[in-house]
Simulated scan of single mutants.
Amino acid sequence: MERAIVKLRKGEGRTIKAGGMWVFDNEIDKITGEFENGDLVYVHDFDDYFMGIGFINTNSKITVRLLSRKKGQEIDAAFITMRVKNAWEYRKKTVDTSSCRVIFGEADFLPGIVIDKFSDVLVVQSLALGIDRLKLQIVEDLIACMEEDGITIRGVYERSDAKVRTNEGMERIKGFIGEPFDTKVEIVENGVRYMVDVEEGQKTGFFLDQKYNRKAIHKLCKGAKVLDCFTHTGSFALNAGIAGAASVLGVDASDLGCKQATENAELNGLQDTVKFLCADVFDLLPELEDKGEKFDVVILDPPAFTKSRNSVKNAVKGYREINLRAMKLIKDGGYLATCSCSHFMTPELFTETIGQAARNVHKRLRQVEYRTQAPDHPILWAADESYYLKFYIFQVCDEK
């Protein structure tokens, strides 16, 4: 079959030459041959050197998403099955698969699709036109892989309702793939039980990428007074509680999040230890400081303050403000767990921002550890977008 050819401009294609997966619209010299958006096309360098095969969509700034760099590679059902099997085998080797991200888009060489497993339920998020045509096969292949390991999936729910789909010229959709089922599912992570609402929860229902970072705070929280900011459905707060914290206050601006967090506390028998408050963290932290409150451990797990390069400056102000306020609330020798989930807040910039906050309030930081996202969200070198989560634990000391 004759495929259209996307030819790069001279000097362009740095991302895919370095091992990345994307070709941007401003890197393209010309497209020859007939195609429809969502079709497979060949990518050639300016001198006609073959660089790969991928999906095209001229509605998107990411015009081509590569699937393979191998010349002559057939992108057929067997190829997709191989990619899905590889993704599942990788998870079996690297993480607890009771609940995990089983496909992470470009980092699993299946660009534009994310699939999370919550116990016996799969949640699919399809974000690119080309892969959208293959999502049903990908789901079927994944279920077949799991059945081979004795795992039964009782239902599949689609959460392709992210705004980014509009950039691809696609409608935002959500709903059942296959038979309807109860969309509330109980999972267990690090010994903590949660009810996950895959229909109404944020993104795919629950943030799995912090699994091992949540576990990392356990020792610090034993017997401690803990403040968990931007608690969402209470995940860090409940990990602190299960680890034996004396008291935990979880804070979030979402009424629904706090309601779900309270239910999760009751599910774990932690309702007397772990409490939740619906409030704006930026308003609450100065109020707690004015009251003279002090905590042994403060956790900051905010949403992404920036989703583009244009708003990084404002994001830096936000991260500096919450870290500065948190450090003021920590007892001398206490601990700060702080993170950023924004890809555009680079590790270097995040580190620098925390350092500025510490200097501004005359605190000395001793780094306990630096972590990133869990291994089921693998970081593909040269695909910068796959590296987004930065997570520090510090001991915070007064200057003496």
Rank of each mutant, 00 (worst) to 15 (best):
K7D: 06
L8C: 11
R14W: 04
I16K: 08
K17A: 12
G19W: 02
M21N: 11
W22T: 00
W22A: 04
V23M: 10
V23L: 09
F24W: 06
D25L: 13
I28C: 04
D29S: 14
K30C: 08
V41M: 06
V43A: 05
F50E: 01
S60C: 05
K61L: 06
T63V: 09
L67G: 03
R69L: 01
R69V: 00
K71M: 08
G72Q: 04
A77Y: 03
A77F: 08
A78L: 14
F79E: 03
F79C: 02
R83Y: 00
N86K: 12
E89M: 05
R101W: 02
D108W: 01
L110P: 01
L110I: 06
I113C: 08
V114M: 14
F118G: 07
F118S: 06
L122A: 05
S126A: 13
G130A: 09
R133L: 04
A144I: 03
M146Y: 12
E148T: 10
G155F: 00
D161V: 10
K163L: 09
R165T: 11
E171D: 15
K174F: 14
I177R: 12
P180D: 10
F181D: 07
E186Q: 15
N190G: 09
V198F: 03
L208H: 09
D209E: 11
H218G: 10
C221I: 00
T231P: 06
S235D: 05
S235R: 08
G241P: 02
G241Q: 07
G241I: 01
A245E: 03
S247M: 12
V248H: 07
G250E: 04
S254P: 03
E263K: 13
N264D: 10
L270Q: 07
T273D: 05
K275D: 01
V281F: 02
P286T: 03
D290A: 11
E293A: 07
F295S: 09
F295K: 12
D296R: 02
V297Q: 09
V297A: 05
D301W: 05
P302R: 08
F305Y: 09
K307G: 03
S308D: 03
A315C: 00
V316L: 05
V316S: 07
V316H: 10
K317Y: 00
R320V: 02
E321L: 08
N323H: 04
N323C: 11
R325V: 05
R325T: 10
K331E: 12
G334H: 04
C341N: 13
H343E: 13
T346L: 07
F350T: 01
I354P: 05
A358W: 05
K363V: 06
K363F: 05
L365G: 14
Q367M: 15
V368N: 08
Y370N: 02
Q373P: 13
A374G: 14
W381A: 15
W381F: 14
Y387W: 11
L389H: 11
F394S: 08
